[in-house]
């Protein structure tokens, strides 16, 4: 049993999507997590809820709304259309946008937890040592939140690798564009190619195990636990 060219394309696409989504999420989650960890605004609860929604919503619901919203008749879709941009649904870009929303809580929450866990004291200490707010963030808050970033990256990546429902709704099934690993497995099963499906599924099982083993190994080593800051 070996991987078909279609399988390899699907694996490569999945890795590309997950890596890109993780990088983008780490960047946009930082200000969100910082604000959520430190604000006392009444907006904290509703924003927290919005960020956490993908945890409870069925991926198909999320995908459905994104399809409507980003489609040529949707609010954002028509705006993008007027700006002369290609429509997002059924494209790799659309998949990136959808995956970012889908995996957002898995990246925001670990970072938010480690910002909250460090408290205000290290930042106050840095302030009395003449560190400006930006300086405090870069040289104190970020290094102290490292375990949170590590688990955010691992969880965000792994969760994006495993998505299916959202992809199917908004990405469809276009080889090399939106056909990721989970969709490829689905196709194999549909075509009764159980051998191929087994092989790819086994890769996913092994991947999931490795990711979790890595998380727990990091937890054992570090003092600020990765898992704890993840959940």
């Amino acid at each position: 049993m070996s991987l078909s060219p279609g399988d390899i394309t699907a694996i490569w696409l999945t890795l590309k999507l997950s890596a890109l989504v993780t990088c983008l999420l780490l960047i946009i989650s930082t200000p969100i997590a910082w604000w959520l960890a430190r604000t006392q605004s009444w907006l904290k609860a509703p924003i927290n809820a919005i960020v956490a929604m993908p945890l409870v919503l069925p991926p198909t619901v999320l995908g459905f709304y994104l399809l409507i919203f980003l489609g040529p008749d949707g609010t954002l879709g028509s705006l993008l259309n007027e700006l002369g941009m290609s429509p997002l649904p059924f494209s790799f870009k659309g998949l990136v946008v959808a995956s970012m929303i889908y995996s957002l809580p898995f990246v925001v929450q670990p970072i938010q937890n480690s910002f909250a866990a460090m408290g205000n004291r290290p930042l106050e200490v840095a302030a009395t040592l003449r560190a400006s707010p930006w300086n405090r963030f870069v040289y104190v808050a970020l290094p102290l939140a490292k375990p949170g970033y590590l688990s955010a990256a691992i969880l965000g990546f792994a969760h994006t690798v495993g998505e299916f429902g959202v992809v199917l709704m908004i990405g469809g099934n276009i080889q090399g564009e939106t056909r990721v690993l989970s969709v490829q497995i689905y196709d194999h099963v549909e075509a009764l190619e159980y051998g191929q499906a087994h092989f790819l599924s086994l890769i996913m099982v092994a991947f999931a195990f490795c990711v979790l083993a890595l998380l727990y190994a990091l937890q054992k080593r570090g003092k600020n636990t990765v898992i704890e800051s993840a959940f």
Binding site: P122, V125, A126, R130, P133, N135, V140, L144
Partner: peptide
Amino acid sequence: HKRPIGYVFQEASLF
């Protein structure tokens, strides 16, 4: 951070 102070906190505050 603009005041010319040194501050020693009650509990250890090393990074």
